[in-house]
Design a protein around this nucleic acid. Structure first.
Length: 874
DNA sequence: ATCCCATGCAA
DNA sequence: TATTGCATGGGAT
């Protein structure tokens, strides 16, 4: 059997991968998508080809003989994107770590290296496979040299394959003639001139007939389009030069030992470290797991009652205990509140102490859980992944062992809040370098999770301390786990019947509006489809259209608002949209979450989702219940307290602006807050140099918009959109604002500067947010990064303060054994279902907890209302 | 089934 | 071409 070599066009494949895949970054903020894509393509090819040898060729950033010959060669090429450039040296390191030969040579392009190598190998009787994204390489195809061009599609990678015959079949010319075709037609991407007036069609026709440009030149007078005939003669020199430029050098002079390209074990320890660092989870599966995961040897499935007793006794004395509860589905799933059946527990308190204990071996599930809580109370530290989801089963843990709890997922979130998920496998991989095969059987997986819990807390603690977030973790985030758990358990009561009739009323109006819209349109269509709606409005009815989206006309509210006064149908559509939204998302959407037994919605409050530190709410989202428009706001009437209770609702008054005043130390803004009732009016008065009492409504509105803009990371464009003014006017407002409050300008500038230097911004309580966008090559991305750097410390600090307040309020209610309970948090607002006799006490607790959550240089004011439903309490 | 887009709701 | 989120229906794959 003939031996085979695979040759890869390094830059070309990196380039393909870079543009074919979405941007990926690892924890350090390195871009990794091109490397990831390259490796995927490479592994696929290696599996298919099973070659004996492999070499990857790269271009060198230096002039080649082609540049010397034609200065403008590749002159039109844009510089490589920064995100891609960064990946090139790393790519080479990764290849070297896998023992793969790379080659590059000054004065030669990768094409020439590939061409020369392919010829040399072919002469030795080898089979050659060249991988490139570039069709120019097709000239190298022979009966023994195959060119393979990967195409990245959504469905995966498809590869076009070309031996010499395939080139002929597809392009009608032989690989060698391909050079002549290119010499005639030129190549804009390489800036090869070719012959003017000759494109692909003509060039191919000429070469099919005459075989080469030289022969065509001899028969120049016969050439078909007279233009080609004339130009070939006139530009003969240029054509000849183009041919030399287009021809790959197959006889270049450079040193290369085939033996160095011999493939060995790619999955070296060194490569493993790189893959881990780059966070190529899927690719890590390729590594032989045995050597790394010798900890598996310590895994024990315990079934004897006495042994179990012994383990619990030993665990009690341990400094750190990692644990996991599992359901006996063939998966370790996050547990949820309620009646899920649990299969057993996992527990680990040392590298050699890792146990899976299924229920039913002398210990029922209840007894296991009880014993586990007992362990938690006595051990030094109790570590789990996603504590909140296990709390329903760990009765008695609260109070007794609360402070010993360590949630590794929460810790991992603080260390990098930008990730999408924080499964224990991810944390194990990132912080322990532990690779876990996702197909691992259940009991072994339980052991892995218990061990990872045990082993991770120390590492995470060290990292949190190093990044000065230990206090944030222990004093805010961990206590908050319990508060959020309480809120989820409490839920909020919703009147199902009322909600249903509200939905039905909407439904009636929607049907009516639908009819009217069809009549005005003269046709029936799906009003919910922006695509169909766009066609009806802007094509069939020829309404003047402003904006477009990628896929068609924009039918967004701000566009339709402008048309509504002139076109009754548009006004109807806006009304229809409003009602449809209320019905689908709120009336019908909320109804499915109401529990039949207690008439309450137990939504989830997520602690590890947002980039800034806010809480998020899902299933359903209880943080976006309508409030601004009356019809929508009515929904709040179905949120009610249980009999004997009232709602008390408290929200911070402009907490973000106050945070800004404090953090910036701006004297004028601080002073404004010390005296102020109406901050926007004061701002207007100061910015427009108008006495407080003479501020017009317009001035106040503008000042308010600027205040908001500042908090979001202002841009003149954004402000101009919001106020419907020109960018210039918006810019003037901003300038005047910064003149009035120079401290704010400095604070925002400093935030951006800090982010550029350190790569992250930080809140008053030490919470960090990385800002990788600031090192993007894309201008818009960088602009975005600047706004993020300005906004995150403000939004994040406000979130920190609210968390402190929530914990304080919840603790106080429980310490006093009160019936009243925290049910909702909406970023700057807390809703408490209050036992009527406790109303005054609750108001006091809220006031105290919220106003004194932080000691700022401006007062933290709140607005507070009571009511028999959420509508009235707001 | 699953994903993406446009849209719209909140602070 | 203003910050942070989540859910929806439509429509492509």
């Amino acid at each position: 059997m003939m031996s085979k070599i695979v040759l890869i066009d390094g830059h070309s494949i990196l380039n393909r991968a870079f543009f074919g895949l979405p941007d990926l970054t690892n924890a350090e903020g390195l871009h990794t998508n091109a490397i990831y894509g390259f490796l995927n393509i490479m592994f696929k090819i290696l599996e298919e080809e099973k070659p004996e040898y492999l070499t990857v060729a790269f271009d060198v950033h230096a002039p080649t003989f082609r540049h010397k010959m034609f200065e403008a060669y590749k002159g039109t090429r844009k510089p490589m994107a920064e995100e891609l450039r960064q990946q090139v040296p790393l790519m080479k390191e990764v290849l070297h770590a896998m023992g793969i030969r790379t080659i590059e040579q000054e004065g030669l392009e990768a094409d020439d290296l590939l061409g020369t190598l392919s010829k040399r190998c072919e002469r030795m009787g080898m089979e050659v496979v060249i991988i490139s994204g570039d069709r120019d390489l097709l000239q190298l195809a022979t009966d023994h040299v195959e060119i393979r061009i990967p195409k990245t599609k959504r469905t995966g990678t498809e590869i076009e394959n070309y031996y010499a015959v395939d080139v002929k079949e597809k392009y009608q010319v032989t690989p060698t003639e391909f050079i002549d075709v290119k010499a005639l037609m030129g190549d804009t991407s390489d800036n090869i001139p070719g012959v003017p007036g000759v494109g692909e069609k003509t060039a191919t026709k000429i070469i099919v007939e005459y075989g080469s440009i030289e022969n065509a030149y001899k028969h120049a007078s016969e050439l078909k389009p007279p233009r080609a005939s004339k130009n070939l003669v006139e530009y003969w020199d240029q054509a000849q030069m183009s041919k030399v430029l287009a021809a790959i050098d197959v006889d270049a002079d450079f040193a290369y030992e085939l033996e160095e390209a011999k493939l060995g074990n790619l999955y070296t320890e060194e490569a493993y470290v790189y893959f881990q660092r780059l966070q190529f989870k899927n690719l890590l599966n390729r590594f032989d797991v045995q050597s790394e995961n010798s900890i598996e040897d310590a895994f024990v499935i315990v079934v004897g009652k006495e042994e179990i007793q012994k383990i619990f006794a030993e665990a009690e004395k341990a400094q750190t205990v990692g644990a996991v509860l599992y359901k006996d589905t063939r998966n370790v799933l996050p547990l949820f509140a309620g009646n899920a059946e649990i299969g057993g527990i996992g527990i680990s308190f040392g590298k050699e102490k890792v146990y899976c204990i299924p229920a039913g071996n002398g210990y029922s599930m209840e007894e296991l859980l009880e014993a586990l809580v007992h362990v938690a109370k006595h051990a030094g530290r109790f570590v789990v992944f996603d504590l909140k989801s296990s709390l329903p089963y760990l009765k008695g843990l609260e109070g007794a062992a609360e402070e010993k709890c360590f949630d590794s997922i929460v810790a991992a979130y603080l260390l990098n809040p930008l990730k999408n998920d924080y499964g224990f496998e991810d944390v194990a991989q990132e912080h322990l370098g532990l690779m876990i095969d996702p197909k691992t059987e259940l009991e072994k997986m339980v052991c892995y999770e218990a061990y990872a819990a045990f082993a991770s807390s120390e590492v995470l603690e060290e990292k949190l301390k190093k990044e000065e977030m230990w206090k944030l973790f222990t004093e805010i985030e961990m206590p908050l786990v319990f508060t959020l758990f309480h809120m989820e358990q409490n839920g909020v009561r919703v009147e199902a019947e009322e909600l249903k009739s509200y939905g039905e009323q909407l439904g009636g109006k929607i049907v009516q509006l639908e009819k009217e819209i069809y009549e005005l349109a003269g046709e029936e269509f799906n009003i919910n489809s922006p695509k169909q709606l766009g066609v009806v409005l802007f094509e069939h009815l020829s309404l003047p259209n402003g904006k477009k989206t990628k896929t068609g006309y924009s039918t967004a509210a701000d566009v339709l608002d402008k048309l509504a006064p002139d076109y009754p149908i548009v006004a109807k559509i806006l009304e229809y949209r409003q009602l449809a939204k209320l019905k689908s998302t709120y009336a019908d959407g909320l109804a499915v979450f109401i529990h039949e037994d207690d008439h309450r919605i137990h939504g989830k409050f997520n602690q590890t989702v947002t980039a800034t530190g806010r809480i998020s709410s899902t299933e359903p989202n209880l943080q976006n219940i309508p409030a601004r428009v009356e019809l929508g706001r009515l929904i709040r009437k179905v949120f009610v307290p249980e009999a004997g209770y009232v709602f008390v609702d408290a929200d911070y008054s402009q907490i973000e602006l106050r945070v800004l005043a404090h953090c910036s130390g701006d004297a004028a803004l601080i002073e404004a807050y010390r005296e102020a009732k109406d901050i926007h009016r004061i701002t207007a008065s100061q910015v427009f140099h108008t006495p407080f009492d003479e501020v017009t409504d317009l001035q106040r509105r503008n000042a308010k918009a600027v205040n908001f803009g500042i908090v979001y990371g202002i841009s003149s464009f954004g402000l101009s959109q919001d106020l419907s003014i020109t960018r210039k006017e918006a810019a003037e407002y901003i300038d005047r604002y910064f003149e009035t409050y120079p401290g704010i300008k400095k604070f925002l500038d400093d935030a951006v500067a800090h982010a550029k230097e350190q790569g992250y911004v930080v809140t008053l309580f030490g919470r960090r947010r990385p800002v990788p966008e600031l090192s993007s090559s894309n201008f818009m991305q960088r602009q975005f990064g600047e706004r993020v750097a300005m906004n995150s410390p403000i939004q994040g600090t406000a979130a920190d303060i609210m968390k402190i307040a929530m914990i304080a309020v919840d603790k106080e209610l429980r310490m006093r054994n009160m019936k009243s309970r925290l049910v909702l948090q909406v970023h700057d607002e807390l809703l408490i279902e209050t036992w009527k006799e406790e109303e005054e006490e609750v108001r006091e607790i809220l006031k105290e907890g919220m106003m004194h959550a932080a000691d700022l240089s401006v007062p933290l004011e709140i607005d507070m209302h009571s009511g028999k439903n959420w509508y009235e309490a707001k």
